[in-house]
């Protein structure tokens, strides 16, 4: 019930490939064909060199924990506190905001630089969110 109220992203033409990707179980990033810069969030040009020749590719889904807070109050709709709001650094370079699942939401368990892997959580028929969990092995 609570999950229904979670803020739901509305894709735009420029971000459609990202949300199609998560629905298909892929974390899709973009790489500039001209300067090879890998970037996020999505846009149809390179924010490093302005080239419009960019390619979409699937990321490995491997990341490390860059920083986080454990939110106690006020909780966002659809969340039960305390819950961590994290920023992870993807193996390919870009960082993204996410939540860490399958892990106690405590400072002891959430160790900066710990290895993580993407885990997809279906919100509804259109939207699947990229979350992260501690890497196995």
């Amino acid at each position: 019930m609570a999950e229904a109220a979670r803020a739901r992203p509305v894709p735009t033409p420029e971000t459609q490939h990202f949300w199609e990707g998560t629905r298909a179980g892929e974390l899709r990033l973009q790489r500039c064909d001209a300067c090879e810069h890998v970037y996020f969030p999505p846009r149809p040009f390179c924010p490093s060199c302005a080239s419009r020749k960019v390619s979409v590719f699937p990321a490995t889904g491997k990341a490390t924990l860059y920083s986080y807070v454990i939110n106690h109050r006020p909780p966002a709709p659809g969340f039960t506190p305390p819950y961590a709001i994290a920023v992870v650094e993807l193996e390919e370079g870009p960082r993204m905001m996410t939540n860490i699942i399958d892990c106690p939401q405590t400072p002891e368990a959430l160790d900066l630089d710990m290895r993580l892997e993407v885990a997809f959580q279906k919100l509804d028929e259109e939207i699947t969110l990229p979350l992260f969990r501690p890497a196995k092995g």
Binding site: R6, A7, R8, P9, V10, P11, T12, T15, F40, P41, N71, P74, P75, A76, P77, G78, F79, Y83, I85, A86, M96, M97, T98, N99, L123, L129
Partner: peptide, 11 residues
């Protein structure tokens, strides 16, 4: 709205 709000930021 797409890449931060869904992860529970609130103020």
């Amino acid at each position: 709205g797409q890449f931060e709000a869904p992860f529970g930021v609130y103020g």
